[in-house]
Amino acid sequence: MDFFHAHQAQHYLVLAAMLFALGAAGVVLRRNAIIVLMSIELMLNAVNLTFLAFSRFPLVPNSPMGSFLTGHAAVFFVIATAAAEASVGLAIIIAVFRSRTSVNVDEFDTLKL
């Protein structure tokens, strides 16, 4: 797609896509609950980078809402939400840790079939 090559945002978009994929792989593959949580944060930050790249180098010249501000505002909302998510996630991990003194995801098997 020469659309991506012609566009200035391509480096940022490719980097963001790679970060997102790394984060997704981390959620699926890593066995430590804390690292799984970090991988989710990585995914959210990859999305932030995408938002910022698109608002700095808009594809649509005259966007309906003014994409510069929309993208930045979106990033702030995502940062705030990610912080809330991390706090709830850490609290849940602590609850799990207390009941079995381990944060290894493979040992969370009380509920299997």
Partner: peptide
């Protein structure tokens, strides 16, 4: 959270294509 992140990536791509999140 994984699903939310995937949703959000979709939102970012839609924003890129249209310049708006509405």
């Amino acid at each position: 959270s994984f699903a939310s992140a995937i949703f959000l990536y979709g939102a970012a791509l839609a924003f890129g294509a249209t310049g708006s999140t509405r």
